[in-house]
Structure formats: C-alpha cells, structure tokens
Design a binder for these strands. Structure first.
Length: 367
DNA sequence: AAGCCGGGGAT
DNA sequence: ATCCCAGGCTT
C-alpha cells in the first residue's frame, strides 16, 4: 500500500501548478463560473490546453452566458467551433444549453448526477465541474489522471479496456481527498500535463517519485499500456469547387450526424466521374480543373481530398439534392467549415488577392 | 466491447 | 509517420 498522494500534490501545485488558465477565474456568480468551467471541459475533451485557449476566449466573447449560448443559432456555435474538431461536442453543448435554459431556469445543475444527464457531459466532465466550482469530492479520470495513477500504482494494460478503466476509476476515487478538491483536481492534471508527461517524464522533479511503483521498477515508459494499433483505411473523395458568374462558391450543409456533422462543405463525390457528371448536368460547358489534392488524417482513416474547380456561366438546372447555397469567399470563411475545407478556401482567397494586387500593379504600371 | 468522432502538438 | 490529448455517444 502506498501513501496518499493528495498532500504532496497540493504542496507541489502551490508552487508549480497552473493558476492562470482563462477558465480558472473566480469572479462572477457561481453560475457564471460553472458555465465557463463547463465550456472549457467540453473543449478540453481530447484536445490540448494550448489549442483550446484561443477558442475558449473567442467563444466566451460570443456567448458570455448559458442563456446567450442557448439563444444563439447552432450555426453560430459551429462557426466558433470550426477547426476544433469533434463537432458533436458543439452540437451537444448547444443542445444542453437549451435544456438548461428551458428545464433548469438557466442555472447549471450543481450535482454530478443531473449534470450527467445533459448531452456531452459524462462522468468525468460532470465530476470536474462540481469539483472545480464547488469543491465536491468527486473523482475525475481524464488522460492526465489515467497516466499519473497508472504509473504511480503500476496498473498494467490499456485504459481503453473496461477492466483497466475500472481499476483506474477505483484508484481515482481513493486518491481524491475530502477537502481541497478543486486544488487537488487541478494539481493532478497539472502534474500529468507538465511532469508526468507521456514521453520524457520529469521524474527527477516529481513529488510522487518517492513511492511511484513504475519509477521504482524503472518502467515508467510502460505505463499506461498503449492502445493496440490497427491500420487505417485510406479514402479518397472529390470536392467540387464550383463558382457561379457572380464569383460566388457553392457550399452544402452536411448531415447533422457523421463526419463533420452540421458543417458547411464543398459538394462531395466518390470520384471524378460522378462529380463531372453532376457539373455537366449543372450546365458546365468547359472542363473542370483539378486543384492540388489535400491529405487529411483522422483517428480512424486517412482522407485524400481532390478539389475539382469549375465555373458555371449560366446555371441551367434547378437545385438538386447535391446542390447548396452560393457564398462569397469572405462569407464562406465565416461559416462552420471542416479544417481542410477552410484551408482550401483560404488558399483560394489568397490567390484571388494576389491576382487583384497583380492587376493593380499592372494598372499602375500602364497608368 | 468496439467503433465513431477532428485536429493539432510533440517526437 | 505515429501517438495521443481535461471523453462521450452509439451500436
């Protein structure tokens, strides 16, 4: 049996913990604080702190309260989430905000159980909210805590396995103190993020190294066990970069579920042939121009995006199921877009501006 | 229990 | 190129 880790973690965190994260601010009402912690916790799911911070700042400026978020259109929320990934988080957050507005009088529940009934809030996120806002002794188990506990107690196996996760939850509950829970929760996450890192851990400065079982065995790198690797399938999709005679580009809204759910996207086709067929039916007379393909990696597959660019002088067909709406590039870039599509449209915008600058330069030369 | 869901940082 | 990150939902 090992000693409790909480006292050492609390002492360590006082000096070395992170105390200036944007969602740690203590000013405002309890509900306002809980709202900020909630949004941060959702953004931080499978996303690193440094990535989240700018998104969090912009999100809070746009949606400063639960009610502001609930009253906003989903499109605005997705636009502010664009580039963060896991867009179900944004849809669930928005749905949950409306539930809080309509069924909880605009106040976030203060207990773990009712929080867990809201979409997007699981056990760990609910625990994080009540621990950080109210100091309730509820255990969290995120990636940092899993790593610290797996090493300290030398728990073998991949945490994705149910049995391993169950052990880690038990340990997390045992280590969570009855007081100073907010500080403890932050401390164990800070240790995992800055000292007990996945690779090259700083065991020399770790406050738990004295009785860390993985460290004692010289096997820190073996914990937690790695996910069994599987090879990812490769996919290839053709995307129509279709302009009309007004210089606007066609975008379609994707289905609410599945990959890039609810986001705006270029019309997507399984191959060039089907895309060209559709373009021909749309009134394209010339040939479509292939643009440079984009490689994009997901957790579970790789995607090659093949853009096919065309200009329609006089659209002759009424909109079909594959058709969408026309947007200027400026307007398009303000929508919720998948990251690679945003990248593609941004490069098109840069090209346009360079062409314009070139034209101005030429004009100036001749004039 | 296993698969799905993004994008980026670190190595 | 590979792994994984302040996980949760669906099947």
């Amino acid at each position: 049996m090992t000693a409790a880790i909480a006292p050492r973690l609390l002492r360590w965190a006082k000096r070395h913990g992170r105390h200036d994260l944007p969602w740690q601010r203590r000013s405002g009402s309890r509900n306002r604080i809980a709202y900020r912690v909630w949004v941060a916790e959702i953004m931080l799911q499978q996303t690193q702190v440094a990535t989240v911070i700018p998104y969090f700042q912009r999100f809070m400026r746009a949606f400063p309260s639960v009610r502001a978020l609930a009253d906003a259109p989903l499109d605005d929320v997705l636009a502010h989430w664009s580039g963060l990934g896991y867009y179900a988080r944004a849809r669930n957050l928005h749905r949950a905000a409306r539930l809080v507005r309509d069924e909880h009088r605009g106040r976030l529940p203060t207990q773990r159980a009712p929080l867990e009934t809201l979409p997007g809030i699981g056990r760990s996120t609910a625990a994080a909210i009540v621990a950080q806002t109210d100091g309730q002794p509820e255990a969290i188990l995120d990636g940092n805590v899993k790593r610290v506990l797996a090493r300290y107690h030398a728990v073998p196996g991949w945490p994705g396995e149910t049995a391993v996760a169950r052990q880690l939850w038990t340990l997390a509950e045992q280590e969570t103190p009855q007081r100073d829970v907010a500080a403890y929760t932050q401390a164990i996450m800070d240790l995992g993020a800055t000292v007990c890192t996945r690779r090259r851990p700083g065991c020399e400065t770790c406050p738990l190294a004295g009785d860390c079982q993985a460290y004692a065995a010289g096997r820190v790198g073996d914990y937690p066990g790695a996910r069994p690797q599987r090879q990812k399938p490769q996919r290839r999709r053709v995307f129509a970069v279709l302009w009309n005679n007004a210089g606007k580009i066609m975008l379609t809204r994707r289905a609410p579920t599945g990959i890039w759910g609810g986001l705006w996207c270029l019309p997507e086709w399984p191959d060039e042939a089907s895309c060209r067929d559709w373009l021909a039916g749309y009134g394209l007379t010339g040939t479509a121009e292939p643009l440079a393909p984009i490689e994009h990696a997901f957790t579970h597959f790789r995607l090659q995006l093949v853009p096919l660019q065309a200009v329609i002088r006089r659209p002759r067909r009424v909109a079909d199921a594959a058709s969408g709406d026309w947007y200027s590039l400026d307007a398009a870039l303000r929508l919720g877009l998948p990251a690679p599509i945003r990248s593609l449209l941004a490069s098109l915008q840069t090209q346009q501006q360079e062409n314009q600058d070139g034209a101005h330069g030429a004009l100036r030369k001749t004039g």
